[in-house]
């Protein structure tokens, strides 16, 4: 565990907290993609199956359970909460799951370290996490007024990705057997998806304006 990874995890946790607070405090999930949130829940379920058979540290197990619980809590609010679900932009959030899940599953079946059920599911979760933000980015492009909490949520997620890349560079330099090309390539793709968003986020932040993405 190094400082970069700790920062990455904290940004990840903070992004989820910001989103949960937004939903609970404003009783609204406007601008948030349910598709992205459900994909993240799927990512966590596939990746953290190892909670049942391997133990790394109290920190890891605690964070895994927290990520699972918060992901399902967000999905529950958006799908079933009587007030919150009415604020969901159903008509705008049209990204098709199958376009993301099918290629990731195929890729995980072909490109993996070991052909076992848990390893393939783990690899699938790595690939899926890389692209799960796409429905959210598409939704933000369609929504004209992006509220600050939504913009900050995505920015915090981007910061989490950035710090994980620093963590991998650090581990690559300091650990002899750190050759994680599956994680590397997916991670770089995932972070690159945020580059465009960050460009406009920085522009609006500098001009002290509300975030607006060009159509």
């Amino acid at each position: 565990m190094n400082l970069f990874r700790l920062c990455g995890d904290m940004f990840h946790l903070l992004s989820i907290m910001v989103l949960l607070l937004k939903i609970r405090a404003t009783r609204s999930c406007r601008g948030i993609s349910l598709k992205t949130q459900e994909l993240y829940a799927l990512v966590f379920v596939c990746r953290y199956l190892d909670l049942f058979y391997s133990f790394i540290s109290v920190y890891n197990s605690f964070m895994k359970v927290t990520f699972l619980a918060t992901a399902f809590s967000i999905v529950r609010y958006m799908r079933y909460d009587k007030v919150v679900k009415q604020t969901y932009d159903r008509e705008q959030d049209t990204f098709r799951y199958v376009f993301l899940i099918a290629p990731c599953l195929l890729l995980a079946l072909v490109l993996n370290h070991r052909f076992t059920l848990t390893e393939v599911l783990w690899t699938f979760s790595i690939y899926l996490e890389a692209v799960a933000i796409l429905p959210q980015l598409v939704l933000m492009q369609r929504t004209q007024n992006i509220d600050n909490l939504t913009a900050n949520y995505v920015a915090l997620l981007g910061a989490y990705r950035g710090f994980y890349i620093l963590n991998w560079i650090y581990r690559f330099a300091t650990e002899r057997h750190y050759r994680q090309w599956i994680v590397w390539i997916s991670g770089v793709i995932q972070t690159a998806l945020y580059a465009d968003f960050f460009f406009y986020y920085a522009l609006c932040w500098k001009a002290n304006k509300r975030l607006q993405l060009p159509a």
């Binding site: 995890d9 890891n60 964070m63 990520f67 370290h113 070991r114 390893e119 057997h177 050759r179 994680q180």
Partner: peptide
């Protein structure tokens, strides 16, 4: 253990 290290991340 080629991939043991990646599994210790979140």
């Amino acid at each position: 253990q080629a991939n043991a290290t990646a599994h210790d991340e979140l």
